[in-house]
Design a protein around this nucleic acid. Structure first.
Length: 202
DNA sequence: CAAACGATTTTCT
DNA sequence: GAAAATCGTTTGG
């Protein structure tokens, strides 16, 4: 089943990030379907989180989508070449979001290999936020798209992730956030090959 | 209006 | 292990 809007419109963004593990992220552009199980996420707690783009209630053209009602996509460009896919949570005017960092490919693997310019399935196909977005065909033009819409959705296929397989850790690439970089807002499935290594992963 | 920089990945040494 | 690639957004003059 496709996750309903009520899954996203809750106050605890950290809890949502954790619950997204094991769910299936699906994109369908021009009738081409690609999907994968979410194995790694990070929570960004809006106004009170120095690592978030919306820290201190900063409101700009780019971050505007984060202030919208939960259940939409927030996609943006980093380093001029990587598209990162986020899920906006919580209610209007509360800029919380969950960054999806990695998936385990399920459907449309051929398409994903093609998009990435690869010919063999390796973990690097979708391990890491930039790589994953490219494999799924996610682009900054999809920012603000509904997750109940025809192009992008997240499904619950009954996959259960045991508590003991969920690891909480510090986030990657946010050292500039000082003390907030130490918050255990990163979740991933223990032992999964598709979890990104990340630079700051110790 | 100009300048600096980043929630990263890949490739080369 | 280190460095480059590359551009929209943010910040300062």
């Amino acid at each position: 089943m496709v996750l309903p809007e009520s899954f996203y419109t809750r106050k605890n963004v950290v809890k949502i990030a954790r619950e997204l593990l094991g769910k299936v992220l699906v994109t369908e552009f021009d009738g081409v379907l690609t999907s994968g199980m979410i194995v790694e996420t990070e929570a960004y707690a809006g106004a009170t989180d120095k690592a978030s783009h919306a820290y201190g209630s900063r409101r700009t053209k780019r971050t505007e989508v984060m202030y919208m009602h939960g259940g939409i996509a927030y996609v943006y460009l980093v380093y001029g070449l990587h598209h990162l896919f986020n899920v906006v949570t919580d209610f209007k005017d509360t800029p919380h979001a969950v960054l999806v960092r990695a998936i385990e490919p399920i459907e449309g693997i051929e398409t994903m290999l093609e998009r990435r310019g690869k010919d063999k399935l390796t973990p690097s196909l979708t391990a890491g936020p930039g790589a994953m977005s490219m494999a799924l065909g996610i682009h900054t033009s999809q920012t603000g798209a509904s997750l109940q819409g025809p192009d992008i959705r997240i499904e619950d296929r009954g996959i259960k992730v045991p508590n003991k397989d969920i690891v909480a850790a510090t986030r990657v690439g946010v050292a500039y956030a000082l003390d907030d970089a130490l918050r255990p807002y990163r979740f991933f499935i223990k032992g999964n090959k598709y979890v990104s290594k990340g630079k700051g992963c110790k």
